[in-house]
């Protein structure tokens, strides 16, 4: 019989097979740099191997790895001072959110606008205006289609915090897109 550590390594290989792309996209969304994303994923797997003996199986291995990738991505940003400040607001929605919600609408764009590659690029650029946690929540929940609960477990947040991050991310993206397309979408 294989030692437990070897079994776990085999499980990590399985996670790499099934979730590797998702893990890389999470790191890429948070760091916004392919090189940094690769570093974050590699550091995460190295750290996971070192921590395997203490992994008690309270979460799925895949969920645990998502959390490590997210933490490594934020650490890398912090070390490189790419984002400042990194403090994440998770308090209740407040006046700033209400103000953002009243941004002039970008709504009812013609289909061509929704389908254009340029609009997708603009959204990618707008994502740079979000905090790392908002980008991570946005990637897993909005783009990746995971549930609020799955996203919360993967990032080590409460479901309530995920909802607040998601809502703020959407409001900020809407405001950034409205600033760009307000005229075109009227």
């Amino acid at each position: 019989m294989a030692p437990p550590d070897l079994d776990r390594r085999a499980e990590l290989l399985q996670v790499l097979e099934t979730d590797g792309d998702r893990l890389y996209r999470l790191a890429l969304r948070v760091t916004r740099d392919p090189g940094l994303a690769e570093d974050a994923v590699q550091e995460a797997f190295t750290s996971a191997i070192e921590s395997l003996p203490s992994f008690r199986g309270e979460a799925r291995l895949s969920t645990w790895l998502h959390r490590i990738v997210y933490t490594k991505s934020v650490d890398i940003l912090r070390k490189r001072k790419r984002e400042a400040p990194l403090d994440e607001e998770t308090a209740e929605l407040g006046a700033d959110d209400a103000r953002l919600a009243r941004t002039p609408a970008w709504s009812r764009p013609p289909d061509a606008l929704l389908e254009s590659a340029e609009t997708a690029r603009a959204l990618q650029e707008a994502l740079a205006g979000l905090t790392p946690a908002q980008r991570a929540v946005f990637e897993l929940r909005e783009v990746g289609g995971q549930s609020t609960e799955e996203t919360a477990a993967a990032l080590g947040l409460s479901p309530g915090a995920v909802r607040i991050h998601l809502h703020r991310a959407r409001l900020r993206l809407r405001a950034l897109l409205a600033a760009r397309y307000g005229g075109a979408a009227a």
Binding site: D21, S107, A117
Partner: peptide, 16 residues
Amino acid sequence: ADLRHLRVLCGQIPRP
């Protein structure tokens, strides 16, 4: 309506 449109846009983001 804007937030719904945003979700449509999300489907077009490249996913490397």
